[in-house]
Amino acid sequence: MSVGESMPYKSKDKQRVFNKEFMPHIDAMYNFAYRLTLDEDDAKDLVQETYLKAFRFINSFEEGTNAKAWLFRILKNSFINNYRKVSKQPNKVDYQEVESYYNSESVDEKITTDLRVETVQHMIGDEITNALNSLDIDFRTVIILCDLEGFTYEEMAKILDIPIGTVRSRLHRARNLLKEKLVNYATSMGYKDKRK
């Protein structure tokens, strides 16, 4: 993920590194792009743009380092630059509000008691997908990176350009919001809590 530290590649090496290090991640890249844009054509354009940028800036990539995180970072930045400003996504999250929310414990208690493991296990992909997609983009992103792609907090901090502490608090808040959405789905679908 370092920038400008490696030696420039020779022309034939650029192709080789591109195909060997970058192309194997195209599935994950498309998934990420699709979950950000929620549109197949936009996802395709975003992935293509990211790969072309990656090729142009390939000298900033050190062979053998974390290509997937490096690509995800470019994709995320391209998304912010191109799509976010024209999209109808809610405004950027107020992190002052996030931190104060994070520091209040009452929310966790309520959600945990309102949602059961059995209920989640009975939910189908559509319900979980809808709940995830309804989250604000910043919250959706940390869940995708952590739970779907398995990035570490440190990798996420680099991809998102935020401190690790913020990764953790945003993830915590994102999961609580997701639980709230799942509670709402469960209620609307008529899942019953057997304890009541």
């Binding site: 498309y30 998934n31 992935v47 939910m123 992909g125 559509d126 979980i128 997908t129 779907l148």
Partner: peptide
């Protein structure tokens, strides 16, 4: 509960199909 949600996200989320020509 958190474990089951994480597992549900990983295993039951609908995956988009990568366009063949991309």
């Amino acid at each position: 509960l958190s474990l089951s949600i994480k597992e549900g996200l990983k295993s039951r989320l609908k995956k988009p199909n990568l366009p063949s020509e991309l």
